[in-house]
Design a protein around this nucleic acid. Structure first.
Length: 413
DNA sequence: TCTGGGGTCCTAGGACCC
DNA sequence: TCTGGGGTCCTAGGACCC
């Protein structure tokens, strides 16, 4: 096997940079994307100016507001992020055919054997960097090595706006002095567990016996041993770039502004979330067998309850019936902070339906396609199951009484 | 400091089957 | 009468990532 050359490209402060693209006055200022300063929620992204105050992603918005009161808080524009991400993807595809978007703002490229086209790795990376800048107006960082994992760590070390190349054979030496937390997959919990064993640096990890790690951390420990030596060992990192992008689950969830035990509010939210989930199933031409709900109470205790249907479905009414049954059986009646709906266990099929069901489902498919088209044209709120609609109107009334026709006092003119 | 939303992968026990 | 062993599916929970 020849050595591979893997690029990992990561956009710098992606959400913030896109916001700056649309509003250049934000440039250089402390900007926080994720919501208003007093909202329930967490920071999605923070500008480098905001990070100086200790603000970072996943931090509660209210905490960020305390650390940096002068920060500009913006809700964010997911649609714009997707659009720019698509542009990045196009630039990458024009550069190399073997591309995998790992998330909205990062990608892997296998550029093995492109030397004649692009030159040696460092030159190729600078070329790519320039093309991304030209195509999107944004900065990125690029890590280069023989393995996905090392390249990812590399691009992180290269930030902001840099390129870093680890020569073949130097992987372990590069990783050794870094904190174990730098290894993708090692989070708070694993870090703490490793610290308890006196393991702080990747080098400490690399020196241990595989068997020791496997004993303590199972299958994962074995992968960890490989990772610490710069190998794409175990799980996702093992897979070639550009493999299998079919979703394995689809979900939507919602955290209420204030915890609620109101039947109707909860019911309509469940219906709405189910509609969104079912719609995306149809977009992917998938049928789901397993339906799951999620409930989080005021004290943050969180429960999931799942049930598998006897046949796979992507029909709103079928899924919502199961969602309601699960909710009915498992809600304690206490106020709820968050509810969610998830489907999984997908089938791509038309198969195993009775003729009667087929007729029924054909009619349904047509009706649902029409509803989907309506939503595309007039927005997500235009069509819905009856109870989801009730919830929507209630909310509109709540927000803005004047928006409902009839029953409201005439505006003074 | 009071904790979003969308995902992936792993573990583990019990059911069920051969 | 006291109890196998492997494989797979289902369900619940948890760590982690962006």
């Amino acid at each position: 096997m020849t050595t591979r050359t893997i690029f990992h490209l990561d956009m710098d402060a992606f959400f913030v940079s896109v916001e700056e693209l649309f509003d250049p006055s934000l440039k250089g200022k402390p900007v926080v994307v994720g919501g208003k300063a007093d909202q329930r929620g967490v920071v999605s992204a923070a500008s480098y100016a905001a990070r100086k105050f200790g603000v970072h992603s996943a931090m509660p918005l209210r905490t960020a507001a305390k650390l940096c009161p002068q920060a500009i808080f913006v809700e964010g524009h997911p649609h714009r992020y997707r659009e720019v991400s698509q542009k990045v993807h196009e630039v990458l595809q024009s550069f190399s055919p073997v591309v995998e978007m790992a998330s909205i703002d990062e990608a892997y490229l296998d550029v093995t054997g492109t030397e004649r086209l692009h030159g040696p790795p460092m030159l190729a990376a600078h070329k790519l960097h320039e093309r991304i800048k030209q195509g999107t107006g944004l900065n990125c960082s690029i890590g280069i090595s023989t393995a996905k994992l090392v390249s990812k760590v590399c691009s992180d070390q290269a930030k902001p706006n840099g390129v870093l190349w680890i020569l073949p054979g130097a992987e372990a030496r590069f990783l050794a002095p870094l904190d174990v937390r730098k290894i993708p997959g090692v989070g708070k919990v694993t870090e703490a567990n490793l610290h308890k064993l006196g393991i702080r640096k990747v080098g400490d990890l690399a020196r241990l016996d595989d068997s020791f790690l496997e004993e303590r951390f199972g299958k994962w420990g074995l992968a960890l041993a490989g990772k610490s030596r710069g190998l794409d060992a175990g799980g996702w990192f093992d897979s070639p770039i550009g493999a299998d992008d079919a979703p394995k689950s689809i979900s939507h969830e919602h955290t209420f502004d204030r915890d609620t035990a109101d039947r109707e509010t909860l019911d309509s939210m469940l219906a709405r979330l189910t509609e969104m989930v079912a719609r995306r199933l149809r977009e992917h031409q998938l049928f789901a067998r397993t339906v799951q709900i999620k409930i989080r109470y005021t004290d943050f205790s969180t429960f999931t309850r799942a049930h598998s249907l006897d046949h796979a479905s992507h029909v709103d009414t079928e899924i919502v019936a199961e969602v309601r049954a699960l909710f009915e059986r498992n809600w304690t009646g206490k106020p709820i902070r968050l509810i969610g709906v998830q489907v999984s266990n997908f089938e791509r099929c038309e198969g195993q339906m009775s003729l009667l069901d087929q007729g029924k489902s054909e009619r349904w498919s047509k009706a649902l396609a029409a509803a989907d088209a309506m939503r595309d044209k007039y927005g997500e709120g235009s069509v819905g199951l009856a109870s989801a609609m009730r919830g929507r109107f209630r909310e509109r009334v709540h927000e803005n009484p004047a928006s409902l026709p009839g029953k409201h006092p005439k505006k003074p003119s």
